[in-house]
Design a protein around this nucleic acid. Structure first.
Lengths: 253, 253
DNA sequence: TACAATTGTGTCATTAATACACTATGATTT
DNA sequence: AAATCATAGTGTATTAATGACACAATTGTA
């Protein structure tokens, strides 16, 4: 959608339905083949990338807006969302100002306003997610943390802040639960933690501690068909998990 | 400031200078006589209370707006501020809608809009702070966490969320440094932690751990003139403190 | 000068974290 | 069939951190 007519319609529609000056941007984390991935969108005909985002209806709760936006991008309905920061540097809007500035006069152009953006991070099951581009994008795809594109606006900062928050909250939020599939092996879970923390952990100590939390249930049958010794399958005991999270996994005083 | 004329002027001025739909509310923590206190404002002629807050100039960074607002309330210039949440439930604005609704038609009334409010908590030195009411308030004063008034809007929720955040961040933010005066005794610092965490700590273990962080400098001279054994005075070694904070006081993996 | 209140300090037991090595299994190669 | 490779499962010894606990020192007051 890049025609002048389409843009004009979008702007008129936006002015009528959305709260001005406020946007939502989401960092959607998924975990695949031992790598943390993030959902990114590519601008049509440009090597420019951005995070899934959108605007808030005039009478819509913030988190509901984030959910609505992400449902469009992922087809997922109930998504674990965590608000982590508002980005509001007036400079961040300057790049916005320039968007489509040749196609529409500033007065009509929705994008020629200052925007504060509310940052959410989302945790999704990689295998359940079907990435869909939005109307400004050419594509929507997963990119590993080790292979991130150049982002528009302050989206690199937003992503970095989300990741920092994720690391800090690793012990307080059900991060494993939301990122892993229903059943998984201990080495797979360990790889998730290693990917988030970006460091190697000791297999034996990891397993001891994880099991010590009492939030995992071991399946009777190990996973078969792999090329090596069959690993046990685990799943989260959601009840115990949520109880443990209320306290936080780690003490502190 | 409650005259129709004054309100009209305020609204006209606000519409011209502030971003619409966005406000800032601050939970200002101070520590005095062993109790955590919060700065609260009282509505003129009503037993209604609210947190210090305000609006953002159209081209002003968020944190600068929070600083400006708090400078007016506290006379303090460089304040430790931490953004912790945006509150945007459409219901929260309903009470706003009613404000001054008899004095001005909705179209002119700045307050008859939906507002998302960005929550900041601030940590200040109680003794350096001079509370000043804003134009809608009759008074601005400290209230202990054990003696909080009934708040307007969702300000009780904002305060609770700030406090929860403060507890979680106790090991990652220079909370002691900002709340204590330059020099303090170990029992005083312990009382701060006990007030924040709302539980008793063991004197000996607290001291051992605190000193173990290597962020305190013990003054040569103990505090004299007290009614009991003269306690040592400590101050924060800012350099070590900030280095330690980068890591966080506690490990986690 | 005895007492009350408070501060300073040390030790022991328990728990948690770290470092580290061998055995077991299943598929592949020889 | 036996050896090999890759991966998974398990245990123990050392060290560090935490939690529980008791007594001595100082200062003003009764």
């Amino acid at each position: 959608m890049l025609t002048k007519k389409g843009l004009k319609e979008f702007c008129a529609d936006a002015r009528e339905n959305y709260l001005p000056h406020i946007s939502i941007d989401c960092v959607v984390f998924g975990f695949h083949e031992g790598i943390m991935k993030v959902l990114v969108l590519k601008v049509q005909n440009e090597d420019e990338w951005y995070l899934p985002g959108g605007f808030m209806l005039k009478n819509e709760p913030i988190e509901m807006a984030a959910n609505r936006i992400l449902k469009e991008r992922t087809t997922l309905d109930k998504i674990f969302l965590q608000q982590f920061n508002v980005f509001g540097d007036p400079e961040r809007s300057k790049e916005h100002f320039d968007m489509y500035k040749d196609m529409l006069p500033a007065k009509e152009n929705w994008f020629s306003n200052r925007f504060l953006t509310i940052g959410y991070y989302a945790l999704v099951d990689f295998f359940e997610t079907n990435p869909n581009p939005d109307q400004f994008a050419e594509s929507c795809e997963w990119r590993g943390l080790d292979d991130l594109p150049d982002f528009k606006l302050d989206h690199a900062l937003i992503l970095k802040t989300a990741l920092d928050t994720l690391r800090l909250q690793l012990n307080y939020q059900p991060i494993g639960y939301n990122l892993m599939p229903k059943e998984f092996t201990m080495p797979e879970l360990q790889k998730l933690y290693e990917a988030i923390l970006d460091k190697k952990l000791d297999r034996r100590n990891f397993q001891r501690r994880m099991l010590g939390f009492g939030i995992l249930t071991r399946s009777d049958e190990p996973r078969k068909g792999g090329a090596h010794k069959a690993p046990y399958l685990y799943s989260f005991d959601l009840e115990n998990y949520e109880a443990a999270l209320k306290e936080g996994f780690k003490g502190g005083w």
